[in-house]
Design a binder for these strands. Structure first.
Length: 311
DNA sequence: AAACGCTGCAACCGCTTGCGG
DNA sequence: CCCGCAAGCGGTTGCAGCGTT
């Protein structure tokens, strides 16, 4: 499917017969072939050299957003979604900077994702996108949900591996992770004291991190001291089953002031002292296919209920 | 089956940044 | 320092495709 803008040519463009709109297969081939032979850069020259009646700008965009061989296609994984949320909270709409941390993904794709998925959900929740409320919701609700999703996926797959390897007589653990029946708090496998996710299909790996300690015991969430954030080696609670995540927010004076972030404010200020609850809708959502909606409508209703009841 | 509405995303626009002369 | 050009970046647009009525 190709989005095609209306062809509006200035007189000057008509004179030079510059083409606009969707790229043809022939143009793609010309561009790819030329870049294969001569490399990127000097886009205006490149456009002429390749025999394309396109602006250099247009060629650059087509190459970077579509033709470049290492571009990853398809839906964003939960890991990637989480990373986008993380990095956006850090840097705001610095799409190209965010894209640098998602190998194979373009700034355009990430920008589109943010606008079509994230901002849409904000609208449906009647929260102004990029408002503090929305950020609170993202950080304290949806990001943990994504983390859960990732953890559960990895937990399930590791059990599947165990299933195939272990002596089935010895194995007495359930074949699926424990799913709480009634609105559990954040569910983390014991091994998840510190998360490090590798990005599939890439040699690079990245840490998906968050400045909060999410306790599976106490329904509490607490921000880690800067000391710890600056030194990941300090992370990892050897005793309790805490998920400790690290990050350094707002180090570049970016869009969000997370310093004032108050977990309880997710309840929209009705109960100032209420603890954060990362509640899970009924059902085995963790086993759902990794469809790439940021969250589903059921999740949203739970969040909305929480908000309305002030929990 | 036709009309309509919604969504995803490719491509464009305009502004900013970087750099050489 | 200023100017002009090229490249980069973020915001916006508009259409194909799909689902719903």
């Amino acid at each position: 499917m190709l989005g095609v803008r209306k062809r509006i040519c200035s007189p000057r463009e008509e004179e030079s017969e510059l083409r606009r709109g969707p790229w043809t297969l022939e143009e793609d081939t010309l561009l790819t072939h030329y870049i294969t032979l001569h490399g990127e850069g000097r886009w205006n020259m490149l456009a002429r050299g390749a025999g394309l009646k396109r602006t250099g700008k247009s060629c650059r965009l087509r190459w970077l957003n579509y033709l470049k061989p290492d571009i990853k296609r398809g839906n964003l994984t939960p890991q990637e979604q989480l990373l986008i949320l993380e990095l956006h909270s850090k840097w705001g709409n610095r799409w190209s900077k965010i894209a640098q941390h998602l190998p194979g993904r373009t700034d355009n794709e990430i920008k589109n994702y943010w606008r079509t998925k994230v901002q849409k959900e904000a609208r449906q929740l009647n929260i102004e996108a990029n408002s503090k409320r929305f950020l609170d919701a993202v950080r304290s609700y949806w990001m943990p949900r994504l983390i859960q999703k990732i953890e559960q996926a990895s937990y399930s797959s590791s059990l599947t591996t165990l299933d195939s390897l272990a002596d089935r007589e010895v194995r007495s653990t359930p074949s699926h992770p424990p799913v709480h029946n009634s609105l559990p708090t954040l569910l983390c496998p014991p091994e998840s004291r510190f998360t490090h996710y590798s990005n599939p299909g890439s040699e690079n790996s990245f840490s998906v991190t968050s400045p909060y300690l999410l306790s599976t015991n106490s329904n509490t969430i607490s921000q880690q001291p800067d000391e710890i954030l600056e030194n990941p080696s300090l992370l990892g609670d050897p005793v309790c089953n805490n998920l400790i995540l690290s990050d350094t927010y707002n180090k570049e004076g970016s869009s969000y002031d997370m310093d004032g972030f108050n977990v309880a404010s997710v309840g929209m200020g009705t109960h100032d002292n209420s603890p954060l609850e990362c509640q899970v809708a009924e059902g085995n959502w963790v086993f759902d296919s990794m469809e790439d909606t940021l969250w589903n409508m059921d999740d949203m209703w739970v969040f909305r209920d929480l908000r309305e009841t002030g929990i």
